[in-house]
């Protein structure tokens, strides 16, 4: 329990939440092995509060496994993940799957899909509807939410998934390669939707990406992982102001950050 000392205490009177600098999530000694490979071996990481972190690394290094362990979808063999010192069971979080087609409920209209987690929480119907409508207005989403998911485009379905994750007002949001099943045009559009969501909510966000451009473009930090057993190769900061646009992609610090990440990535790939 060496982490307890690191866990910040609950905010006291007069403390400005937005200026808290203590990490939001502390990961200590996380270990995971599959029959044929050790994926994580005593892995440590701090996830900063209110930032968007992209996880990037070689294929099969366990990018998704990392967020799945943090979000409790996959049990870890050992180690501890604490959110402001609390276990996952006491934390409201959102999770967006890569496969939106299989993650949404096709028997519910988009609106009810978004409201579903509130229903699980036992919130009355009127309040649920109010919450969803508030979120829709807040994000400026222009989708006919009376439609069933199979009548929406892929991007719209994933946007519905993201809203379903956000409706509980999570303190942390996980996205597992959310745009990789979309075509390029839709990917670009969805990146900007996610950027807007992040700017509006400032929710701590962990994004697994297999696209380096996307990873850098969206994030405050790129978490570069090594081949398994995964270590942090570097926690690369990128602090271009938001909203970032097409122009950002050709600015020197974007190009330099991306080149730096690519160099580290290729070194990792060759090492394998």
């Amino acid at each position: 329990m060496r982490v307890t000392s690191l866990a910040p205490s609950v905010a006291t009177g007069g403390f400005d939440e937005s200026r808290r600098t203590a990490p939001h999530v502390t990961i200590r000694g996380l270990s995971k092995h599959y029959p044929d490979a050790v994926i994580y071996d005593r892995f440590d990481l701090d996830i900063p509060r209110g930032k968007l972190i992209s996880v990037f690394g070689p294929n099969g290094c366990g990018k998704s496994t990392l967020i799945n362990m943090i979000a409790g979808l996959v049990p870890a063999d050992a180690g501890e993940v604490l959110f402001d010192g609390r276990p996952l069971s006491r934390v409201k979080f959102g999770y967006v799957f890569q496969n939106y087609r299989e993650a949404l409920f096709p028997w519910l209209p988009a609106f009810d899909n978004i409201a579903y987690p509130l229903k699980v929480m036992g919130m009355p119907k009127a309040e649920r509807e109010q919450r969803v409508e508030r979120l829709v207005a807040h994000l400026g989403v222009k989708i006919d939410l009376a439609l069933y998911p199979y009548h929406l485009s892929g991007g719209q379905q994933q946007l519905v998934s993201i809203m379903r994750a956000l409706v509980v007002e999570p303190e942390i949001l996980f996205l597992d390669e959310p745009f990789s099943a979309l075509d390029y045009e839709m990917t670009l559009f969805m990146r900007d939707q996610l950027q807007r969501v992040f700017m509006e909510t400032r929710t701590t966000t962990v994004l697994v990406s297999h696209d380096l451009e996307e990873a850098v473009y969206l994030s405050d930090h790129v978490l570069l992982l090594s081949r398994h057993p995964a270590r942090v190769v570097e926690f690369v900061p990128y602090d271009a102001p938001r909203p970032r646009t097409d122009k950002t992609l050709s600015e020197p610090d974007f190009v330099a950050t991306k080149a730096h990440c690519l160099k580290l990535f290729q070194r990792e790939v060759r090492r394998g």
Partner: peptide, 29 residues
């Protein structure tokens, strides 16, 4: 029943009974 759909319900905090009635039953229809 699609594993992702069951996981999605679980991640949203649905209990086993709720997953059965809200997801599995409809998935099997």
């Amino acid at each position: 029943a699609r594993k992702t759909r069951l996981l999605a319900a679980k991640v949203m905090g649905a209990s086993r009974t709720r997953v059965l009635f809200d997801v599995m039953l409809l998935e099997s229809l």
